[in-house]
Amino acid sequence: MRDALAEAILELGTKDRRIVVLGADTSVSIKTSLFGERFPERFFNVGIAESNMIGIASGLALAGKIPVVSTYSAFVPGKCLDQIRNAVAYPNLNVKIVSSHGGLTVGPDGASHQTIEDVAVMRAIPHMHVVIPADAPSARELILKAASTPGPFYMRLSRPNVATVHESTADLEIGKAALLRDGSDVTIVACGIMLSEAMIAAENLSQEGISAEIIDCHTVKPLDNATLGKSAAKTGAVITAEEHNIIGGLGGAVAEALSESRPVRIERVGVRDTFGESGEHSELLVKYGLTSREIAKAARRLVRGQSA
């Protein structure tokens, strides 16, 4: 996904001179430094100063630039929520925050670097778009689409290489959930790396005669209520899956929306309101229940009418 970010911003920077990129001493790691090598005049490394980075991005946007701001998601929004709220979201500025290493899968770095609350926090801020791509091709496409959509964005990327779930990405739109697999018994709404887990779960469930529909809800805000409601009406049961606390993220957003528009049974797969720890990312996904197995278990319970 890091390569997707670097590719996307290089493409954007070539096409549009308004694109500027800001880094906070992590730009080599997340490869935005490649933009700096190509366009040194339009790349600003502010050092380990995330608040200042967002404030500078605000000023650049106020002067007509389109800043792409990027560092680890542990620090943006964590260390600069006030700047994001007051200097970016409130004035509705064209700042694209792309945070990398989101969720648990930074692995060995441990809980201080694992973000499980960023989506909840960013989603509650007016004007803010929240986007979590599932794989590298969709990340690239959604970054390009976000750059051409006015307003503030928070995009969260994951560190590990994830399986590609999108065969084509040209049709992806901000705010439009993508149907990845047709099904009739249960809907799995996922974002980020949990899409590939959802695909495995659906394959296994089909062998048991359970037909699962899969929706890539890459845009958590604004939420695509129409697509979600339509699928919930068809299957009558919804599972959300995310690399985030089950409080306030995709699960929270979907539960809020469907409880008003199309009440159905919902199970949320995600981190169960606890901090993470050091470990390999695959080990962490198993320990914290972020696997195809957990999704499939939830699907069986919903289809059989059992409680969690």
């Binding site: 005049e41 000023g59 650049l60 630039k65 004035p91």
Partner: peptide
């Protein structure tokens, strides 16, 4: 009005962003 100041500490950063944009342009 050029900047929505209010929460203290942000304005100088935003002014830097505007100054950088001025240099770029």
């Amino acid at each position: 009005v050029e900047f929505p100041g209010g929460s203290l500490g942000i304005g100088l950063s935003a002014a830097i962003g505007m100054a950088l944009a001025g240099k770029l342009d």
